[in-house]
């Protein structure tokens, strides 16, 4: 056994700086080691915890890697059909206007099969938070091309790299919805460094605060790595994401208080 560097003398409640939020269940998440979904779940749960809205929040899980999000987030949740989460959330919010309603969706769910539901929920200005995890690949089904797969990026269904002359262009869904009148807050963030996690958490908090104030649709994209799908180690994948994803999917706020800022 290796040397012990524990400092039991400071492990007291008054010295506690950070612990797992109670809005996450005790279930071990099924995500691959290093997957951004876990971090995104955790900060979402922390925001719900810090706002004290656990009993007033209803979430909608997608089809994709995060299909089982309801096993980890300790709030009432529905599991939608593929791409339909914004439709469910629309009705849940309209029939329960005092509840906080969010969807949590991947790029296949939100930007391919559910494009229609996403655009129309945003355009109607549904008072919901849409959390969009973009890792440029279909993780759950084994690494196929996503609508957000970068040009030249290799996946199981574009094994020689995405050829845009044949397969079309990567879709910037977040920029697209920012131009719809119904969206109030649109931002693109990431969760690969402590600083980026703090920023993303602040963005989620802002989105839920806007919902509290009855503002329009809030859309938070989180650019994330899929190390299994990209066939890299978690640390390599985060580096690859910074070097390749961020130049195309630029981080930062796109629309704030209903006004385009970018």
């Amino acid at each position: 056994m290796s040397e012990n560097f524990d400092r039991p003398e400071i492990r007291k409640p008054e010295n506690l700086i950070y612990s797992r939020t109670k809005v996450l269940t005790d279930n071990i998440m099924h995500y691959c080691p290093g997957c951004g979904h876990g971090t995104a779940h955790r900060i979402l749960a922390e925001v719900i915890d810090e706002m004290g809205i656990q009993n007033d929040t209803i979430g909608v899980a997608p089809v994709g890697c995060s299909v089982l999000a309801y096993n980890y987030l300790d709030v009432d949740m529905a599991e939608a059909a593929h791409g339909r989460a914004p439709a469910l959330a629309t009705a849940i919010k309209r029939l329960n206007p005092n509840k906080f309603v969010f969807t949590y969706q991947g790029d296949g769910d939100l930007a391919a099969i559910g494009t229609g539901e996403t655009i129309h929920a945003c355009n109607r200005g549904e008072k919901i938070v849409i959390i969009f995890i973009n890792n440029g690949i279909y993780g759950m089904t084994g690494g196929q091309m996503a609508p957000t797969t970068l040009e030249g990026m290799k996946t199981a269904t574009c094994p020689y790299g995405r050829d845009i002359s044949i397969m079309g262009n990567p879709l910037k869904m977040t920029e697209l919805v920012s131009h719809l009148k119904g969206t109030y807050y649109v931002t693109r963030q990431s969760v690969q460094t402590p600083a980026s996690v703090r920023k993303t958490k602040a963005a989620l908090r802002k989105a839920f605060e806007y919902q509290k104030d009855g503002k329009g649709a809030c859309f938070v994209e989180i650019v994330s790595s899929c190390n299994s799908g990209w066939k890299m180690t978690p640390v390599q994948a985060n580096k690859w994401m910074e070097e390749n994803m961020f130049p195309f999917y630029e981080l930062g706020d796109i629309k704030v208080d209903g006004e385009l800022v970018k």
Binding site: A78, T90, E117
Partner: peptide, 14 residues
């Protein structure tokens, strides 16, 4: 209609 029935799904879920 796809959205309609899924709105029904959401409403019924609540």
């Amino acid at each position: 209609e796809v959205a309609s029935i899924n709105m029904v799904y959401g409403g019924a879920a609540s």
